[in-house]
Design a protein around this nucleic acid. Sequence first.
DNA 1: AAGTGGTCTAGACCACGTC
DNA 2: ACGTGGTCTAGACCACTTT
Lengths: 242, 242
Amino acid sequence: MIQESPTFSPLYRQIKGLMIQALEAGEWLPGQMIPSEQELAARFSVSQGTVRKAVDEMAADNLLVRKQGKGTFVASHHDPRALFRFLRLVPVDGDIVHPESVPLECWRAKAGQEASRILAIKPGDPIIIVRRLLRFAKKPVVIDEIYLPGEIFQGLTLEMLQSWNSSLYSLFETRFGLRMIRAQERIRAVAADRSVAEALKVPEGKPLLSVERVTYTYGDKPVEWRRGLYLTDEHYYLNELN
Amino acid sequence: MIQESPTFSPLYRQIKGLMIQALEAGEWLPGQMIPSEQELAARFSVSQGTVRKAVDEMAADNLLVRKQGKGTFVASHHDPRALFRFLRLVPVDGDIVHPESVPLECWRAKAGQEASRILAIKPGDPIIIVRRLLRFAKKPVVIDEIYLPGEIFQGLTLEMLQSWNSSLYSLFETRFGLRMIRAQERIRAVAADRSVAEALKVPEGKPLLSVERVTYTYGDKPVEWRRGLYLTDEHYYLNELN
DNA sequence: AAGTGGTCTAGACCACGTC
DNA sequence: ACGTGGTCTAGACCACTTT
């Protein structure tokens, strides 16, 4: 049954909403195969074509991955292809290398004005701050400072970060059931201060890319705020405009 | 008729190819309405649903714009909404303001090693170089150096640029029949040299965003190479990651 | 009222992967 | 051989815009 005109939403979008609910509720987990289009059509009492449109949109949103002949799967940050969805850093010459993540520090704090606004929590609420380095081919290239809402990331420790040898988001996914859906990056150019210069082994005042990222999970809920400083001597930030 | 398996391409994609040919050939011009889905279906001897899928993809590619109840139109850079498709610069606070473009210089040269490689022309082929400033609310924020293949842009002059009060790409579209389809940007952080510092009224050595853009028209043909230096004191480069 | 794109359905068949 | 997603068709009806 379709609603009346003012808030008109087509059937396939309502189906999409129901399927996102199923994802949020953990009915289908990352990496798992979801029911076939026929089964979903029966479950929601619509035609297979309508389910198809819903799944099409969700695949376009990177929530699902279709594999012809096999089935449709819940997108996962364990998928190696998912890594460069959020990390747009590419070497000037030479092949793409997977970066090595080096967690440096991890401590508790209380949310200040800015953190609380961005993470949609109350000032004074607990947050966790992580500092880590990214190395490409042994060379330090990125230094990140990551702010996480403490309530969601209870139990996160430096040891946990250090013993995890895959991407941060894949850790968040398995340990905290958190799936990063989309992000927004604000980029500017800044000069390296003393501590950053030291970490990246460059002179103080060196121009760096400042990349501030807010990452959202289902329902446009912000769950991560990070600021990365990128050394762009041998890498650049690549952006495709379509 | 669908081809055999190894190079299998579905019907709707073949239709899409034919429609792109029609666009390239200038059969349908920017801003104009294309034939209805029924007419196209008859023209290509396929069902309306197949045309629909072709048009869907072309709309997703920003080649066409659908308007319910009115028709489907060829995308145009005259559309004010098209401006910020390629310009991702947003003020830190305050509303989005349309920038003012100030052409500074325009001269002829011969393509060097790098320009010829990027623009897919021969070294020594004529190119046109444009320098221009972008001002937001009277303040200089971006200085661009733009390299164009001379053969395509014959007759481009500084006066022409200065008398045009809309976006560069809308000028290219109307004066040279050239439609910019997609672009790729490589971003790094650099220090302002003397001449740039002067143009942007900042001290020498100021960290700036260096944005190198290669822009393509139909058939992935590169037709513009530009390097912009962005002052990011009161603006940032915004990127949505989906 | 007429024309456009947008949705929904039902059914047939194709391509791909697995058993 | 079977199950999955992918394509194609034909037709009905809805929503939006213009005449």
